[in-house]
């Protein structure tokens, strides 16, 4: 296989990063958790494309294998887990209709910050990410390092989702956005962390999502809702 030309590589890498950032923004935009999870899966594909492109460009087969793993985890397994948790939370109104049962479990109806303001905040966060990332870009100028602010912007947007969304599953997506952003930063900055660390991190993230999924079910049992605002038992 011949290495990709630098021009094409830069184009495709920028495209993958653009799609990656766009997916984070769309997560902020949508209210239906199903759509949010689908967007998250698409972001996983964009994320996997980054190491794939770097691997193809630098002809590093290990990186291509890592990309496959990342894609399988972020675009396959994690969205599948989320979809299953969502299905468990929203009983399909088949045999028995509960009129009083609201469909709000499947929607982020009232985020702490409304969607228009969230989107404008995301714009500000992106600019902040570019400002913060300036020394990072300056350290090793190249197509990958120039895209570094995208990773940081997704980290900030993930934190923002985590802080302002009230559905438990939306918070999980926020955490995963944060994690995707960090993974993208790692690939763009240094072609990824060493394999053992990457494996450990992926495994930890998978377990964390499993734990959060179980806790969501328990929360639904204990509180009757997955609205984080209803968690008011513990305070001083």
């Amino acid at each position: 296989m011949r290495p990709m030309s630098t021009g094409t590589y830069t184009q495709l890498l920028d495209l993958a990063c653009g799609a990656f950032l766009l997916a984070a923004v769309v997560v902020l935009w949508r209210r239906e958790l199903v759509a949010i999870v689908r967007t998250f899966a698409l972001q996983g594909i964009a994320l996997a494309a980054i190491p794939l492109l770097i691997g193809l460009h630098e002809q590093r087969w290990g990186l291509i294998a890592v990309a496959t793993g990342i894609g399988a985890l972020r675009a396959g397994l994690l969205p599948y887990l989320m979809r299953r948790a969502l299905a468990a939370l929203t009983p399909s109104g088949g045999e028995e209709h509960h009129y009083e049962e609201d469909v709000s479990e499947a929607r982020e109806t009232q985020p702490l910050v409304n969607v228009a303001a969230s989107l404008l905040t995301a714009a500000a966060l992106t600019l902040l990410a570019y400002a913060v990332a300036r020394p990072l870009v300056a350290l090793n100028p190249g197509p990958a390092a120039r895209a570094l602010p995208v990773g940081l912007a997704v980290v900030l947007i993930g934190l923002f989702v985590l802080a302002t969304r009230r559905r438990a599953l939306a918070q999980v997506v926020g955490f995963l956005l944060l994690d995707n952003g960090i993974t993208a930063t790692a690939f763009l900055a240094a072609s990824g962390v060493p394999l053992i660390v990457e494996l450990g991190v992926s495994f930890d993230v998978l377990l964390a999502v499993l734990v959060l999924q179980i806790l969501t079910t328990r929360m639904r049992t204990a509180f009757g809702t997955t609205d984080i605002d209803d968690l008011r038992e513990l305070h001083d």
């Binding site: 653009g18 950032l21 766009l22 923004v25 935009w29 969607v115 228009a116 303001a117 989107l119 404008l120 995301a122 714009a123 992106t126 600019l127």
Partner: peptide, 9 residues
């Protein structure tokens, strides 16, 4: 606001 954000991005 979404489309403005896209433009800004």
């Amino acid at each position: 606001a979404g489309s403005f954000l896209l433009a800004l991005l």
